[in-house]
Simulated assay, not measured.
Amino acid sequence: MALVELGRFDRQEAHIVQGRLESEEIMSFVFDAGTSIADGSYFLIPVRVMVDDDDYVAALKILEDPA
């Protein structure tokens, strides 16, 4: 299993993306969600959503689907 970056989102959107992927049985991970809380830039730093490289294409299709 090799993780690849699916995209960068604000914190709330990253967790919504993760939930959408998990509803389609694609495991994902949210990285950097706790970065820079102490210095006040909590909402400014994008959060990475990572998926297994074998699931990357399927995950992209899910994100492109407006449903």
Score class of each variant (00 low, 15 high):
M1H: 12
A2G: 15
A2I: 14
L3W: 08
L3N: 10
V4F: 01
V4G: 02
E5V: 02
E5A: 04
E5K: 08
G7S: 04
G7T: 08
G7I: 08
R8V: 05
F9I: 07
D10L: 05
R11F: 04
R11T: 09
R11P: 04
R11D: 05
Q12V: 15
Q12K: 13
Q12C: 12
E13T: 13
A14Q: 00
A14L: 04
H15L: 14
H15K: 15
H15E: 14
I16A: 06
I16M: 10
V17Q: 05
V17Y: 01
V17L: 05
V17E: 03
V17F: 00
Q18T: 08
Q18V: 13
Q18C: 08
G19L: 06
G19H: 06
G19A: 10
G19N: 10
G19D: 10
R20K: 15
L21W: 01
L21V: 05
L21R: 09
E22L: 13
S23F: 00
S23W: 00
S23V: 01
S23Q: 10
E25S: 13
E25C: 07
E25M: 09
I26Q: 06
I26V: 12
I26S: 04
M27P: 07
S28P: 07
S28M: 12
F29M: 14
F29V: 15
V30D: 02
V30M: 06
F31H: 12
F31A: 11
D32H: 06
D32P: 01
D32L: 08
A33D: 12
G34S: 11
G34D: 15
G34M: 11
G34C: 09
T35S: 11
T35R: 14
S36Y: 02
I37G: 07
I37Y: 03
A38K: 13
D39Q: 11
G40A: 04
S41D: 09
S41Y: 12
Y42C: 09
Y42A: 12
Y42W: 11
Y42S: 13
Y42V: 11
F43W: 10
L44Y: 06
L44I: 03
I45W: 00
I45V: 11
I45G: 00
I45E: 06
P46F: 01
P46E: 02
P46R: 03
V47Q: 01
V47S: 00
R48S: 14
R48L: 14
R48H: 09
R48D: 11
V49L: 01
V49H: 00
M50P: 13
M50W: 07
M50R: 14
M50T: 05
V51Y: 02
V51R: 07
D52S: 10
D52R: 09
D53R: 14
D53S: 14
D53N: 12
D54M: 12
D55R: 12
D55C: 08
D55K: 13
D55W: 05
D55F: 00
Y56C: 13
V57M: 09
A58C: 02
A58V: 05
A58F: 03
A58Y: 04
A58L: 03
A59W: 01
A59H: 03
A59G: 03
L60F: 00
L60Q: 15
K61Q: 08
I62R: 05
I62N: 06
I62A: 02
I62W: 05
I62V: 01
L63T: 04
L63F: 02
L63Y: 00
L63W: 04
E64G: 04
D65S: 10
D65T: 04
D65I: 01
P66I: 14
P66D: 15
A67V: 09
